[in-house]
Amino acid sequence: MTPTPIRFYQVGSFAVGNRLLEEELRTVQSDPRRANSLDRGHRACQGCGEALGARYALDAAVRATGGDLVAINATGCLEVFSTPFPESSWRVPWLHSLFGNTPAVASGVAAALRVKGRSNVRVVAQAGDGGTVDIGFGALSGMFERNDDVLFICYDNEAYMNTGVQRSGATPPAARTATTEAVGPEPGNPFGQGKDLPRIALAHGIGYVATATVADLHDLEAKVIKAMARHGARYLHVLVPCPLGWGSQSRDTIRLARLAAESGLFPVFEAEDGIVTSVRKIRHKVPVEDYLVLQRRFAHLFKPERRDEVIAHLQALADENITRYGLVAPEEVEV
């Protein structure tokens, strides 16, 4: 039998397999004692980026806190697919109240734990992009401003997927949604709109702000663990591709998350105490087109005729990110 040669980049992700890492550096998911916080049996779509992101994030948080964790969840896909009563996929204490009040509910839980002398029990709040940048924004800003002891995780799939793919304040320009149809002279979501929540979070002066994608789960885990080592308001923004809403293949979820980062459209960085302390460098810069072409929400940029000016506009946004965060070393900027 011919031995298969070991290749580091077997899946094209540049990720190094766990078995080649020191034990303490391995992913939480490789640990047989992992918490399975979001357990099997839930009803997420095949290839759901949010389910993947939530499982890794929560299990990492459980590891970081020794299991002393409470999760608060906004209304949305994650809430609906994980918990139609009496079947809950959550193995951590979990509370869903409403769509727009998750940060405030989390503040209340943290306050209760503090007054009860149980500050060792930590609070993670989770919401999609709608629950974070739109309807929950006021409550989130309040939680940040008060510096309440909550890690807030936004699983960003760039639209209201639970209600059938409507535009949110996190929907990228040109993307087709059910409320930004790909028709008219400027099809899809307009340019010049939307919120950059990680930067807004930074502007609140909170101690920890980071972004991550489900293409680099080890990075996601590391950021959760680092966030849980700190107190006060913390924010983690995770890009989670949605096959249903993006019109992509289920098998492409990880690839799309990677391409979003490698094109510069989604900058992956970390800021501590207001200073950007690390950025995830782009290893092989790709044109945004490589990312766009895999998604039906951008199909109108390629058919019936190419919309080069729109693609170039999106490329310019990616290049802006690359410059702003220094995602590519100067000599590597050429595509």
Binding site: A104, S107, G108
Partner: peptide, 22 residues
């Protein structure tokens, strides 16, 4: 714990979280 919150919606939501946490 006395929290100055940013709206009434948050005020009752904080109370909801606190009550659910005992």
């Amino acid at each position: 714990e006395f929290l100055n919150v940013e709206s009434e919606f948050a005020a009752l939501s904080v109370a909801i979280g606190a009550s659910a946490a005992g």
